[in-house]
Nucleic acid binder design. Structure first.
Lengths: 225, 225
DNA sequence: GAACGGTTTTCAGCCCGCTGTCAGAGCCGT
DNA sequence: ACGGCTCTGACAGCGGGCTGAAAACCGTTC
């Protein structure tokens, strides 16, 4: 379990590191908001403990930035005791829980564990193949930073392919999974829809992620093209 | 301070009543899960102590039912020592803390006081999606600064959507949650109500937060439009 | 009980765009 | 050059969703 602590008070930061490490976490500490944001983006943590009061980029900024970038790592915010508004704002900007200072480590750990348990299950992960991103819950697709609109059938097909990225999938398999399993129409429909996906996801971006394996089906490149 | 104790072992129930009353709590005791749930709903407590092992409706059921009904009274669950899974499940179903049997009254009281301190303020009073705000307790809605009046059904629908903001929700799911789960009328009703929400919340403000995902349902933009 | 305002549900018609089909051209391995 | 896949553009039908209105329902008031 890796945790990131973003906290500018050095004493508190050190205390948190010790407390969490004693509980078996691997801990990184960032002393500024900028560093914190950078680490949160670059590394992959199971949880983030975030002080709201930071010089420069504050906790709210970091939190909303991460959420905007679709980073769903569980975030526990540390707020000042008397600032009620902070707590509302913490949850609004996308934090999963908050703790008012001062707090005991026992409580912190308990909350963090609760978050971790909910954590991942909460929202099904977005699936990526290179710079192709698919959010199953929201039913949204991005190629790099631009969102691409797909119809229901196009979405199902892409979802199937991206879940099997890097694998060869036969036309028959696709028909069974994306169309009704008893579909008895023209298998050419798959070619038609592959083409539609290419037109929306590959051609405009100069990519070639959706490969034809003549005689044995199709494959979505696992690096997204 | 009013506390509810839900516990079927009479000796333990009596002990808890004495211990808590000695600490200045006004205590109600329920000996069955059904009674406990009923009391928790009807009365207003500052804390609930809930045994997981109950004949009939058990502690988990009570807890999740209450949370679903948006009753956020702090809940302390009493679990069996060796059942690790119970403790996880306790927190997952929405309990705020748990205690393994056997326990000392001193610890119970201490934990309970800790819960009370965090207490009700814990849960966000309002849910937001961008500049769309919903106050579940007060049953009020604002778009930006202006309050919008909704009927009961409109409110339920919006509440459901805003709790799933950013996610695609199918018409069937909506029917199950906003209408009776066994609703057998015309699903067109959802379209009708979506339209009413749009007329009240989007159109007058030049927004388009309530999107149609043809073939797969609706989605409330998580930035509110 | 009758009248009434508001809410909820049903209904029928319309529209648009998704879906699946097809025929012809293109491509590839043999 | 040939035969089988695959690609491509066009097209017609269908059905999902939208809309306005009317009917059923429900709680209130007289």
């Amino acid at each position: 379990m890796r945790a990131l602590v973003v906290e500018d008070e050095k004493r508190l930061a050190a205390g948190l590191r010790n407390g969490l490490e004693a509980e078996g976490f691997a801990v990184d500490v960032a002393l500024t908001g900028t560093d914190g944001l950078w680490l949160a983006r670059e590394e992959s943590y199971d949880a983030i403990v975030l002080d709201v009061m930071l010089p420069g980029v504050d906790g709210f900024d970091i939190c909303s930035t991460l959420r905007n970038e679709r980073v769903w790592t569980p975030i526990l915010m540390l707020t000042a005791r008397d600032a009620d508004a902070d707590q509302v704002r913490a949850l609004d900007t996308g934090a999963d829980d908050y703790l008012t200072k001062p707090f005991s480590y026992a409580v912190l750990i308990a909350r963090l564990r609760a978050l971790l348990r909910r954590g991942a299950a909460e929202r099904p992960a977005v699936i990526c193949a290179g710079d192709l991103r698919l959010d199953p819950a929201a039913r949204r697709i991005w190629r790099g930073e631009v969102e691409v609109g797909l119809t229901a059938r196009e979405f199902s097909l892409l979802e199937f392919l991206i879940r099997h990225r890097g694998e060869a999938v036969s036309k028959r398999t696709i028909l069974d999974h994306v169309w009704d399993y008893d579909f008895e129409g023209d298998p050419n429909i798959v070619e038609v829809y592959v083409r539609r996906l290419r037109n929306k996801l590959d051609r405009p971006f100069g990519k070639g992620s959706l490969q034809t394996l003549r005689g044995s089906g199709y494959r979505l490149a696992d690096d997204g093209g």
